[in-house]
Computed example of a mutant assay.
Amino acid sequence: MNIDLQALEARHPAAKPGAPAALRALNLQLAAGEQVAIIGPSGAGKTTLLQVLACAQPPTQGTLQLAGVNPWAQSVGALRALRGRLFLAPQVPPLPPRQRVVTSVLAGRLPAMGLWASLRSLFYPADIPAAYEALAHFDLGDKLFERVDRLSGGERQRVGLARALLAPARLWLIDEPLSALDPVRARMAMTALVGLARERQVTLVATLHQVDMALAHFPRIIGLRDGQQVFDLPPDQVSPERLAHLYDQHEHELRGEALPAALQELAPAAPAPVVMHCR
């Protein structure tokens, strides 16, 4: 699915009146089947961009076209059909806690299923081998019949990613997919997502805080800061100087630290231990 944004502006739904727009004068074109990583500091507008691309919120200015059409100029039925061709994986997947993993993964197919088939799938999973194969890409095949509330945060995040592999979508929108994963499983997840998107000619847009993962796995890197595009380059042209400019005053995010040095100095010191003397 190709994407075309022209002078697009969007506001976060929870933004206060008078607050700056989350996205400003954004121009972006993606060809069908491209894999793109969006990087930038917190508050850059990355999640808002995914929400706009997922047709979850309309732009306040400018134009958005997906597969050559303006979603917000379509009828209700046409917009619903278009949304069925999109897959949005939020950072914290909304998985019902008492549901079995197999059911949660097969829920990725719901946009292509009728009402009765959808209801039946809640009680009788229709394609267990497909669910197992999707989970196996993320090292979760052994969790097929576990309950979701018995999974760790990282396991739940990978179940959310496995849904994408079964969705009838031509555009995968993945928000911070590695936030709860250790380095080994993070590399596994990125390899699976990018490789399968390329193999299936699915357009993939992923937001990442892990700059090293973005540079290692994606052929195109877009830097956002304060709602505006700073650069749009292949990974070998994303120099340390460009990254330093992108993350100016947010160096702790680039280095993966909890707080920048200046803030660490201002942080309250840990209380001194209390020593008890017994007489």
Rank of each mutant, 00 (worst) to 15 (best):
G160N: 05
M113F: 13
F145C: 03
Y132R: 15
V205L: 14
R147L: 03
F138E: 02
V202I: 15
A136K: 12
D175T: 09
Y124E: 10
L151M: 11
P111I: 05
T203N: 00
A189P: 13
L193K: 06
E146Q: 10
Y124P: 00
A164G: 11
D149Q: 15
P183F: 14
L204Y: 12
D142M: 04
A186S: 15
L193D: 05
E199V: 00
I174G: 00
M188I: 13
D149F: 12
S121E: 15
L161Y: 09
L135F: 06
A189N: 05
G153L: 10
S179Y: 14
K143E: 04
L140I: 08
A117M: 01
A180S: 14
L196Y: 05
S118D: 04
T191E: 14
V184R: 15
L193F: 09
R150Q: 15
L115I: 08
A117D: 15
V202Q: 11
R109P: 12
L140F: 08
D142H: 15
T191K: 14
S179R: 03
S121I: 03
A126I: 05
G108D: 06
M113G: 04
A136S: 12
P177T: 00
A167Y: 11
P111W: 01
L196H: 11
R187W: 04
G108L: 06
E155K: 05
E146D: 13
V194K: 01
P111H: 00
A130S: 08
L178T: 15
S121Y: 00
L166N: 10
A164Q: 10
D142N: 13
M188K: 13
A197L: 09
Q157M: 09
F138M: 01
D127H: 08
A126T: 03
E133T: 13
Q157K: 08
A162N: 00
L171H: 06
M188A: 08
F138Y: 10
L144E: 04
L165V: 00
G160L: 08
A136Y: 04
L161A: 09
A126C: 07
G141S: 10
K143L: 07
A192C: 04
M113E: 09
A164Y: 08
V202A: 11
M188N: 05
D142V: 09
V194C: 03
D127K: 01
L119P: 02
A126Q: 14
D139Y: 01
A126F: 07
L193S: 02
R156C: 11
A112F: 11
G195D: 03
L151A: 06
L166P: 14
L173S: 08
S118L: 07
A162F: 03
M190R: 06
L204Q: 02
L135K: 08
A192K: 01
Q201L: 00
G114M: 13
A189D: 10
E176V: 09
P177H: 07
P168V: 05
V159E: 06
R147V: 11
L119S: 05
G108Y: 11
Q157L: 12
R198I: 01
R156W: 02
R200Q: 12
Y124R: 15
A134E: 04
V194T: 14
V205H: 09
L181Q: 08
M190I: 03
L135A: 06
G153V: 09
A136R: 13
R156D: 00
W172S: 02
L193N: 02
P177S: 02
A112K: 05
Q157R: 12
V202T: 15
L110Q: 12
L181S: 04
Y124S: 13
E199F: 02
R163T: 07
G108C: 04
L171P: 01
